[in-house]
Amino acid sequence: MSIFNLFRRANSGNVARERLQILLTHERRSGGSHELVALIHREVIAAIAKHVNIDPDKVEVEIQYRDKVSFLEINLEIPAGERARAA
């Protein structure tokens, strides 16, 4: 440890680490299973659209892989006017 550690933030090794951390956080979120996510995305839209009008762009599907369990997160927006129909 020395005073020069103060300058280390600018080192290219640190830049590399920061770039990788950001990139891998994003890549792990899709977990290398883009096909699976795309398939679930399509099928969710098809299933919901039978009952409620939804905007396909407002449907988000994400899989997060963890050591023990993985999470499938589906977020979708139902337009205000559709609430009555859905109920």
Binding site: R8, N11, S12, G13, N14, A16, R17, L20, Q21, L24
Partner: peptide, 15 residues
């Protein structure tokens, strides 16, 4: 590595 021009061992292990 000593000059900070490479990812350090800790960086790689951490990632």
């Amino acid at each position: 590595a000593a000059r900070g021009e490479m990812l350090s061992v800790e960086d790689v292990l951490d990632i």
